[in-house]
Amino acid sequence: MLSRLFAVLSLALAAQIAAPMALAQGQNAVSLSGDVQVVRTIEENGTARTVLEPPTQVVPGDRLVFSTSYRNTSGQVVEDFVITNPLPAAVVLAENGAFAVSVDGAKSFGSLASLSVTLEDGATRPAELADVTHVRWTLDRLEPGASGSVTYFATIR
């Protein structure tokens, strides 16, 4: 009985020791943290006000803001820093922004205006917000300790 308890304890200890070690081995120079909020318009005393709320009771047509915070947690300069965010299938990009987009599942990126979509009959049409599958931010260089965040707005289909 006692020996079994000890075995369990030592297992737990081993797990505690192993975890930080694994983290250290695969440690990233950059940390990314995602968040999503729903954009609601609240009317108070006849004036409309926009507030961000946690994504509860979200229904089709609601507007969301997806954000990703980044930080260079290392002592080194980070280069060629690119954040890519696949859009969930259930949302459509609500507005263009300071990012490149892909309308072909991340095969190619560019400004929305520069992209086109090939139709079933082989013809092409200019890409629209609803065609966007990925958004991408290119930040190039992060000094040690530098941080920031990127966002995109989307609407529930």
Partner: peptide
């Protein structure tokens, strides 16, 4: 929703994923 980033610190390209934020449509 999960974002990912790629970068290098002078060596090979590395990548990192953000946490996944999720919710259900009401």
């Amino acid at each position: 929703n999960t974002a990912s980033a790629s970068y290098n610190t002078g060596g090979p390209t590395q990548s990192v994923d953000s946490n996944t934020v999720s919710f259900r449509v009401a």
